[in-house]
Design a protein around this nucleic acid. Sequence first.
DNA 1: TTGTATGCGTTATCAA
DNA 2: TTGATAACGCATACAA
Lengths: 332, 332
Amino acid sequence: MKNKVTIKDVAKYAGVSPSTVSRVLNNYLHIKPDKRQKVEEAIKELNFEPNEIARSLITNKSKTIGLVVDDISNPFFSETSKVIILKARQLGYEILIYDTSGEEDLKKTLKFLLSRNLSGIIVGSVSRYDQNFEELVGESIPVVYFNRKPEKSNFFSVTMDNKKGSKMTISHLIQKGHSRIAFIGGPFEYSTYYDRYLGYYESINEFGLTIDEELILKGKPTNDYIQNFVTRILSKPDRPTAIVASTDQIAITVLDAIEKNNFRVPNDVAVIGFDNIQVSSNPYIGLTTISQQKSKMAELALNTLILLIEKNLKETPEDVVISPKLITRKTT
Amino acid sequence: MKNKVTIKDVAKYAGVSPSTVSRVLNNYLHIKPDKRQKVEEAIKELNFEPNEIARSLITNKSKTIGLVVDDISNPFFSETSKVIILKARQLGYEILIYDTSGEEDLKKTLKFLLSRNLSGIIVGSVSRYDQNFEELVGESIPVVYFNRKPEKSNFFSVTMDNKKGSKMTISHLIQKGHSRIAFIGGPFEYSTYYDRYLGYYESINEFGLTIDEELILKGKPTNDYIQNFVTRILSKPDRPTAIVASTDQIAITVLDAIEKNNFRVPNDVAVIGFDNIQVSSNPYIGLTTISQQKSKMAELALNTLILLIEKNLKETPEDVVISPKLITRKTT
DNA sequence: TTGTATGCGTTATCAA
DNA sequence: TTGATAACGCATACAA
């Protein structure tokens, strides 16, 4: 059942001109009901499916949205991507997915993406300094930053209030009686990590505790790096009684490191993560975490983009900021 | 920097005809070196990027591969998708991702996909009985089944020997001294789950143990379903000392259920999963599992598809079967 | 070896 | 309200 039926075949079958068929397809007004019906019958009968490629060539839109992520195998991205993919299809759009991991030359590949007449782009992972999208995409098609945003931006964005999230972890821990609280950060080139760090730093001060740089891990946290750090801080005489990890994935590694050092969670050490990925809710892990309400965030990003695409108006960019939610489980 | 430069502009700039530019673009032979060079210079100078949509309209190919998965938020799929996405781009193809979850009418949406002149499709999740792809796609574009395949198939496939994988779990457990081994299956409409079940069943017999239907959970394993099952079998006087779970995700829930029943892993109960997803290797979980070498599988599927696309020859379909590997960790 | 003309399947423009 | 025709950007048959 090859898809070789064209608009012409439908036109012939229905006894009208191709333009009329096109008009029916695009829900034009002012079509005589009987003709419309004939066309619709012909479409059904011939099993006609409009060729999106041809459409796209002339309209410069493709009913395809580019989704740029850092690492699709990261549960945060795969889980949000799912929301975006499903919702998009529901609205008649497909998703072209782009995983930037290990990308040296974003410019080149971005141009490749753009050569497909994308209707719009959702960028799930952009560094704080990146200007590629602003420069290359410019005003040609709508772009929405999601999860992270660069410091200089002329596009819409949907992000979480990461600073606030961090503060929530600290106040939760303080309420539980902790006062020595360690922090494991991530690459500061991303706003998510950077803001979480800032939130930690500020709230430790605000609550009248003292910052101990030895309890703070900066830089890209590899497994070994985390293991060593945890071992080191837990062996201190004034060891911390709680650890805030920048992501759930880090937190899970922290859980292991704590166990390896023969401490127990949460009695000896409490642990909090960020993101509320699926495994965190698995009772075996039961990680207390800051939820960024990622489904809501993803849906909002998509809706914003679709609005920009379909209204086709250049409103002044808006930054939607979602509030974090603390989800208490057994690690605190 | 809008992408408004066309082949005509390049032609004008280089002082040649558009067709010559096209020939350079497509690496034709018989082009005078000096003209070729002029064209190449013009392309660089004008920052020209061929419009893939226009190309696709005429060639009926789109340098886009459809990737159909059941659930992209499932780590197995997100991790294999990543391999496919990266490898594909390296070869000049983009990935249109399609998540079928909750799809009632695959036919309709498949047609929508096909209306985009996809170069080929990789199907990561097809039921044993599905004939949609065979019927709708037919010979129009290449299709490769990946991970799962239907019982009747005229397409290439790349899968793991799931039966063998199951047998490996049993022989591993028997070697460790277990003889009462429970099994948690999944939806039998998928070949992966079905074959893993068959492998369990057959090898229990082959090793001279007796099948106890009460130790076998069939059907779609929800969390509650798993929890209840584990609680039930562990409270039996002749309780099992090992549990084989059809996937790592199930296994992790099993770990929790075991803990809730105050048994310890692996001393009281051993656990094995399938898939070797990333979290399983996290030392905190340390799940023994059967690896299907999913990266290798994914790459093989893509390579097969690309070969079919570019050779454009209809070879007789082949079923590539990958050998499972046992990865021993702390749960057995 | 190169240029001209045509067409891919659709929408947009114009006239009727 | 409808139809004829051009156009989208490119690849290709054919001519030169």
